[in-house]
């Protein structure tokens, strides 16, 4: 994880963009499951959400939906970042 400040190569910029995206998505991963589903479940349970207590819903339903979305968002966003930095595997559908 240690990056030299300079010289800033393309690969280093690519890697930093990747880490930034990853950090953001993992923060959401943590907030919905450990945050809403566990640490804040009790206070959130006072809120009603479509017939569920809200904390309970996050713990047994909501967090799983968010997990699925996070992976697809990562896959799509990384494709863009791959292409922008010219390191994508687009033309490597059938190697050798």
């Amino acid at each position: 994880m240690s990056q030299q400040p300079s010289p800033d190569t393309n690969h280093q910029r690519y890697w930093r963009a990747n880490l930034k995206l990853m950090g953001l998505l993992l923060a959401i991963w943590f907030i919905v499951s450990f945050g809403f589903g566990i640490l804040l479940a009790k206070p959130l349970n006072r809120i009603e959400f479509f017939g569920f207590k809200f904390g309970f819903w996050w713990a047994q339903q909501g967090s799983i939906y968010v997990f699925v979305a996070l992976i697809f968002i990562y896959a799509a966003a990384m494709r863009r970042i791959d292409r922008k930095h010219g390191v994508s595997d687009d033309d490597q559908s059938e190697p050798s």
Partner: peptide, 29 residues
């Protein structure tokens, strides 16, 4: 297990799905 644990069953629900986020972001590619 969830039927008898109620809310606590969430450890399995989140635990056995949340790992895929780690797998997809941190390891698999």
């Amino acid at each position: 297990i969830i039927a008898f644990m109620g809310y606590d069953g969430a450890v399995y629900l989140m635990g056995w799905t949340g790992g895929y986020v780690l797998l997809a972001l941190l390891l698999a590619p």
